[in-house]
């Protein structure tokens, strides 16, 4: 099975633990090279986060488990990239 290289998740999470802590624990996972979390909506108690994880062998179940342990819920998988090289989304004439 090909290595997962990029994972973009839409996550609903409580305000605490903050995205600073969440990004650090995710970055500590084996196979992860870097993490980016950006907030696009904030509520009184929760926030919606776009979590981008890149690595040489990202393990999806570990990522989800860690997000859930921190109180988050994965709403959708918005983008994935797997394989020997990282392939970017290509703009086509249909776009």
């Amino acid at each position: 099975m090909g290595n997962l290289r990029r994972l973009v998740l839409d996550v609903l999470k409580p305000l605490e633990p903050s995205i600073v802590e969440l990004s650090q624990v995710l970055a500590d996972l084996d196979g992860v090279d870097g993490v980016n979390i950006s907030i696009y909506e904030i509520d009184r108690r929760v926030e919606n986060a776009k979590i981008t994880i890149e690595g040489h062998n990202v393990r999806y179940p570990d990522v989800v488990r860690l997000i859930e342990q921190n109180g988050g819920a994965v709403h959708s998988i918005d983008e994935v990239a797997a394989g020997k090289v990282l392939i970017e989304d290509v703009v086509t004439a249909q776009d």
């Binding site: 509520d43 108690r45 342990q69 109180g71 819920a73």
Partner: peptide, 16 residues
């Protein structure tokens, strides 16, 4: 319980 209603998840076994 309020937070669980907001996230629609069971938070008992989480850090929170």
């Amino acid at each position: 319980a309020e937070l669980e209603r907001s996230t629609l998840t069971d938070l008992k076994d989480t850090k929170i």
